[in-house]
Amino acid sequence: MTVKNILIIGGASGIGKEIALRFAKEGHQVAVADINKQTLTQMVMDSGHHNLVPFEVDASCWESVASLANEIKKRFGFLHILVYSAGITKSVKFLDIDWATWNKTMAVNLHGLFYSIKFCQPILEQGGSIIIIGSGSAITGTGGGIHYAASKGGAFGLMRSLVTELGKNNININVVAPRVIESDMLKSLYPTEQSKQSLTKEIPIGRFGTPSDVFHAVNYLSSAKGKYVHGQILLLDGGRTYKQSL
């Protein structure tokens, strides 16, 4: 097995944590970056993986991401895989969204993605992979609020605009767009058992997705088998988005 250098931004919890732990378990060198230092430190300690290296970063801050890229270069030299999993949302109705909520959502979900690719792309080796953890909300416009859907939709456009430029260096870039994945974010949006049961009925496959489902998609897209997949959005939703009503 070829050991890969992997950076997961937003990797201390939820989907990002699962991806980081799974790659580390497989023996890869995994840099896990997150804004929550306490959660990050605890995650690394609990994992027992010596190849899981913590880095504190504020993805919404230009200088912080630039510094992270410099530290990664010093520690690993180069990257094989960049995964951007940082994301926030707050369930607020359109007319109730204030500037702070809109701005913070865009800063983390979209601006941080741009900063991360901009500063990390120079240390991605030829043949590397960039995987963006997006959301089915960008397709449906539902779930998480208009600010969340708009930020994730922006990620789709950013990804597509980079296809030609990154392709020149044989770097493939794709979005994995989960919908209804078991996570803290899902719990905040659907806090009651009744709301969860109602949601499950809308999913043809009959269950919520798991962080493990997302990992398998990321693993494929960043592997040799997935290298010809470039500039695509992989929707993970159990069939919910395009189900037919009988």
Rank of each mutant, 00 (worst) to 15 (best):
G157H: 05
V44P: 00
K196P: 10
T142V: 10
I171N: 05
L7C: 02
A107F: 04
V57Q: 06
G141S: 07
N169E: 09
I205L: 13
S13R: 15
H50D: 12
E56Q: 13
H147P: 00
T105V: 03
A31Y: 06
L40I: 00
I133K: 03
E63A: 11
M159L: 09
T192Q: 05
L113C: 10
L113E: 09
A149Q: 01
L79D: 04
S222T: 09
F215D: 00
G209P: 01
R179Y: 15
A177G: 03
S212E: 11
G157N: 03
Y228Q: 11
I171Q: 07
K196W: 09
E63V: 09
H50P: 15
A69Y: 11
G209Y: 05
D96K: 08
I8H: 00
F94D: 09
L110V: 01
F156K: 12
G153H: 05
A24V: 04
N174F: 02
I132E: 06
V92L: 06
T105E: 05
I131K: 10
A100Y: 10
G141H: 04
I133V: 12
T192I: 08
L95R: 07
L186A: 13
E202A: 13
T101A: 07
F114L: 11
F119S: 08
I130H: 07
F78G: 14
S223I: 01
L236H: 01
E71V: 04
N36W: 10
T105S: 03
S137R: 07
H80I: 00
I181M: 08
W99T: 07
Q42D: 12
S183P: 03
D213P: 00
Y115N: 06
K152A: 00
L68Q: 07
S60Y: 09
D46Y: 09
K104I: 08
G143W: 08
C120T: 15
E71K: 15
V3T: 12
I81W: 10
P204I: 02
K243Y: 10
Q42N: 10
K152T: 03
L236I: 10
K17W: 10
S222F: 09
H50W: 08
K225F: 13
I35S: 13
I72D: 02
N172S: 13
L166G: 04
V176G: 00
P211D: 02
L113R: 12
T41G: 07
L82A: 09
E56I: 12
L246K: 14
T241H: 06
G27Q: 04
I117K: 04
K104H: 09
R75H: 14
N170P: 05
P204W: 03
I146Y: 06
D46G: 06
D213M: 02
